[in-house]
Write a protein that binds this DNA or RNA. Structure first.
Ligand SMILES: [Mn+2]
Ligand SMILES: [Mn+2]
Ligand SMILES: [Zn+2]
Ligand SMILES: [Zn+2]
Lengths: 140, 140
DNA sequence: TCTTGACTTGGACAGCGTCCATCGTAGGAT
DNA sequence: ATCCTACGATGGACGCTGTCCAAGTCAAGA
């Protein structure tokens, strides 16, 4: 993630402590935090960071393609630093846990031209839903 | 849709004028209205119907499996009466138009057991994104 | 060290949806 | 036909998520 900061500086970004902390919070695998979770974790290191700055920084990271926005349902969007390796998501219908998954096959190829209605289709999102092992056990 | 009202009465529902009007508004093909759009159309026939009642009725129809909830993005959920024939959605990234599509193949089969992490996977949603013909023309 | 415009802040605001106390009425009972 | 009452409708307050703005702050180049 430190090369991320380098890349951003290369694009003319000021390296503020706020942006540094947000980038640190987003470091890791299988990270799918909401904006408010990012804010809470960032505030542990930098107590007075504002919600507005977290939203601004996340939005910029998304525009730059460094972070992916994941809309799991009607709740808050989640932010995913694993933006460079394309993947899909498996969501627990009970607790909301999100896992990265890598299905085989190309879903774009499964949409025949006759089913495209003249749209220029550029992307496809696949969301698998089910019960995670913990929730399945609790329900049994 | 009148058989819908019969089915609902069979389940012990009171047939109020409000519920009748909401069901009428949701009749048709390729209908993907937001709750507020449903409310606006219902109010043309029944001026004093409340937002709360529209939300309640839509929620009940979803629980009964008569209507599908479609979360297109960060905007309002859309309600889809075409719940009995499984299908996926093609969404215009610019204007938000939603089309029903029927891809070939089974996306569930594309997720190997090793990629399920012990989840009991029960459903999969596929959302295709692109530009509709109108928006593509406007952008050219 | 100085300067400046990019960045941050906190609070107001807006959209979408839920909740709740109160009122009204559908539909069974008589 | 009338009465009863539990279920449903109402509308306004509320909560969550996210955006916007005017004012203050500071990173970084000169
Ligand atoms: Mn992910
Ligand atoms: Mn549909
Ligand atoms: Zn779970
Ligand atoms: Zn369009």
């Amino acid at each position: 993630m430190s090369d991320l900061l380098e890349r951003l500086r290369g694009r003319g970004w000021r390296l503020t402590s706020q942006r540094r902390v947000v980038a640190e919070v987003l470091d890791g695998e299988h990270v799918h935090l909401t904006a408010d979770e990012v804010h809470a974790r960032a505030a542990r290191r930098l107590p007075e960071i504002s919600r507005a700055t977290v939203y601004n920084t996340l939005g910029e990271l998304v525009s730059l393609g460094e972070v992916m926005e994941v809309a799991t349902d009607g709740r808050a969007k989640r932010y995913d630093p694993n933006a460079h390796r394309p993947h899909q998501h498996l969501v627990c219908a009970s607790c909301g846990t999100v896992r990265d998954v890598h299905p085989t096959g190309d879903p774009l190829a499964d949409l025949p031209a006759a089913e495209r209605f003249g749209f220029a289709v550029s992307a496809v999102e696949v969301t698998y839903r089910g019960l995670c092992p913990d929730c399945a056990r609790a329900r049994a």
